[in-house]
Design a protein around this nucleic acid. Sequence first.
DNA 1: ATGGACCTTCCAGTACGGGGGAAGGTCAAG
DNA 2: CTTGACCTTCCCCCGTACTGGAAGGTCCAT
Lengths: 129, 129
Amino acid sequence: MRIGELAEAAGTTAKTLRFYEEQGLLPEAERTPSGYRDYTPEAVVRIDFIHRGQAAGLTLAQVRQILDIRDDGQAPCGHVQDLLDSRLADLDEQIAQLVALRETITQLRDQAATVEPETCSPDQVCRYL
Amino acid sequence: MRIGELAEAAGTTAKTLRFYEEQGLLPEAERTPSGYRDYTPEAVVRIDFIHRGQAAGLTLAQVRQILDIRDDGQAPCGHVQDLLDSRLADLDEQIAQLVALRETITQLRDQAATVEPETCSPDQVCRYL
DNA sequence: ATGGACCTTCCAGTACGGGGGAAGGTCAAG
DNA sequence: CTTGACCTTCCCCCGTACTGGAAGGTCCAT
């Protein structure tokens, strides 16, 4: 199948598939005599996997690591666990930071809502920040 | 004071200050006869404000909006309130998404932790994803 | 043979907040 | 008078995951 068909079957664009190939996520495709990329239908499975990895918050570089291990004939289970664990730790930290930021902003906004604007002194930029 | 001194006093780098000037966050500095930027110590106040804005999760473009209003002689209070409100709404959505993602990943990792790696079939990339 | 839909490569740009480094000018100390 | 630290402008680079577009080749139907 041609790149456009594959893209539609996998729910993405031809442009993105060329990008994935360039990034090493897809193997270099076979070519027809005229130079068109020629894919087997199984390529959809790999692209779906990439999408699932992204849905799990992995970067393309991380998905590629898993794919490389698998392409090497090994089971990437251990590495996948590590990646998920570290993603989880990052996520916890990220969430904590956002919650703290939320707290800070809530306070700032509450101040901004109660103080009279007229009392702002002209020599500072903004009393709320 | 020269740009390096100001940078150190404000806890940033000369490079960043030139960048801020270019982005309109700092007014164009006075120059010495030889072309060096020459700042008054009050410049630190403005840079601190920029840092507080960033700490509140505002982008430099948003901080610049506030600064522009203030530089225009007005009190930016209303605009600051709007910015904080909208930042708060974004934050809530962002947190909700991360929490949902955390849930997904937790489930994936729990599966990855309980299944025997040996039972992975070689025809799929990874059974956990 | 011609039109349109598809494909190819390559180059550039998006948003964000800077950083790196070159080529050259300036200033103060020794 | 030279050395070293600082300054100037300039342009390109980082990561992330693409997207847009130009210039040209191919395939199929009419």
